[in-house]
């Protein structure tokens, strides 16, 4: 007799623990406004990305198509994966002196691990991290980008 009672209490206890769990799920079933799911592709316009989010390396230009990059190559040295290549040219100034300037700041997005070391090392603050995270492309050659815009030149007063 005792064993039968113990058997039935065990079953009832088991059912009770299942009901306790069901109570939690039922609570959320009947309070759908507490859901946290985001409808991602639809909510693109209201999507807030943290300002420090590391999506890609970008080089901001001002309205006169000027950037702050001197072509020193410190970002290239600091990059652990070789995703940055700096190609420089030499400009001849008005007084006849030669000066190094950036020709192409090549950035391989496909190799980048977004570690932020290049941005941290940049002495002039020429490159920053952008918040764009939608990097899917049809052809991987489009992942290689030239960060300085064509025809751009260095801002006045920026020195290494």
């Amino acid at each position: 007799m005792k064993s039968i009672i113990a058997y039935i209490t065990e079953i009832l206890k088991g059912i009770w623990t299942l009901l306790t769990g069901m109570k939690v799920t039922a609570k959320y079933f009947f309070t759908p406004w507490k859901h946290v799911t985001q409808q991602y592709p639809e909510n693109r316009k209201t999507l807030k990305i943290a300002e420090r989010f590391r999506g890609e390396v970008i080089m901001p230009h001002n309205e006169n198509n000027e950037h702050k990059c001197t072509g020193c190559g410190i970002c290239e040295i600091n990059c652990p994966n070789g995703s940055i290549e700096i190609i420089t040219k030499s400009l001849i100034l008005e007084d006849g002196k030669k000066k190094r300037a950036i020709d192409q700041h090549i950035y391989h997005l496909g190799m980048c691990t977004f570690c932020n070391l290049c941005v941290k090392a940049c002495p002039t603050g020429a490159i920053v991290m952008g918040q764009n995270f939608e990097h899917a492309v049809w052809d991987r050659s489009t992942l290689t980008k030239v960060l300085n815009q064509p025809g751009s030149k260095i801002m006045e007063g920026v020195k290494d």
Partner: peptide
């Protein structure tokens, strides 16, 4: 877990590979 990852994203700039 999402709440913690949002905190990481705001301070560290990444959710998983924070560095």
């Amino acid at each position: 877990r999402e709440d913690i990852l949002d905190i990481f994203e705001e301070t560290c700039g990444a959710r998983l590979t924070v560095n």
